[in-house]
């Protein structure tokens, strides 16, 4: 299948390795990956922080850039959630019925990576090898907004060599929440503290998830504590093979 990669500005700038891994997994499975270079940001940070008028040009831009493709895949649950669940709100706010029609049509073609692999293409074994003890944190937007369900776990269970351990209270938010982590830093850190405790209780060496934003939060806390536990995006685990 021909797939347009929606890298997200966050991964593009801060986590290029996740983008490279996403390309690798998709190509290994025989998909043709294209990268529309006009893409920038979906507008989630602006929209969710309340700067919604400022987000509308970004919504229009996204529709223009990705509209022509049959399938758009992103290694981020929350950015896909923005496009699928919140773009209609933005279009309503802009009082633009044509835009509303366009975003509703586009929303059906935009997928988070695990959702694309498991639900859209029916693949669970991507040929990965990852000999580490790993725990999986289901991020809130992938879990409750996109309802990816077991898709990421189905993929992880088929990874060879992996020692997958269940995270206690996994469904509880890590406390990131975008600008919430800065605006309500105290509450955010209080939430993070409990998440870190649960991660450490698993004795995993790696905590993975489908969103680098949440992982940056969890990983930032682990690193500050010198916990010796790393965060790695799901795409990077799926991209790992015995050769590399």
């Amino acid at each position: 299948m021909r797939v347009a990669l929606f890298i997200t500005c966050f991964n593009d700038t801060l986590f290029p390795e996740t983008g490279r891994a996403t390309v690798e997994v998709l190509e290994r499975l025989g998909h043709e990956v294209v990268f529309p270079e006009e893409q920038t940001c979906c507008g989630q940070m602006h929209f969710n922080t309340g700067y919604q008028r400022e987000a509308i040009p970004l919504v229009r831009r996204f529709v223009e850039v990705f509209g022509p493709y049959d399938a758009v895949v992103a290694p981020s649950g929350s950015c896909v959630g923005m496009v699928r669940e919140l773009y209609p709100l933005a279009a309503n706010l802009a009082n633009d019925n044509e835009l509303l029609y366009e975003v509703e049509e586009l929303g059906e073609k935009v997928f988070e990576l695990s959702e694309f692999l498991v639900k859209k293409t029916g693949v669970t074994d991507v040929g990965a090898y990852y000999p580490h003890r790993v725990t999986y944190h289901p991020t809130c937007h992938s879990l409750r907004m996109l309802k990816v369900g077991e898709a990421p776990l189905k993929l992880l269970r088929r990874v060879r060599g992996i020692d997958l351990v269940e995270l206690p209270e996994a469904k509880e938010c890590c406390g990131f929440g975008g600008t919430f982590a800065v605006k309500n830093a105290d509450t955010s850190v209080a939430m993070l503290g409990d998440k870190l405790r649960h991660v450490l209780d698993t004795e995993a060496e790696i905590c993975t998830a489908g969103d680098n934003s949440c992982l940056m939060h969890i990983g930032g806390g682990l690193k500050r504590q010198r916990a010796g536990v790393r965060t790695v995006h799901l795409a990077e685990i799926l991209a790992s093979t015995e050769e590399r």
């Binding site: 809130c140 937007h141 469904k171 509880e172 929440g177 919430f180 309500n184 939430m191």
Partner: peptide
């Protein structure tokens, strides 16, 4: 703003 928008 007193929410991480976790959706629970």
């Amino acid at each position: 703003y007193a929410s991480s928008l976790c959706g629970a």
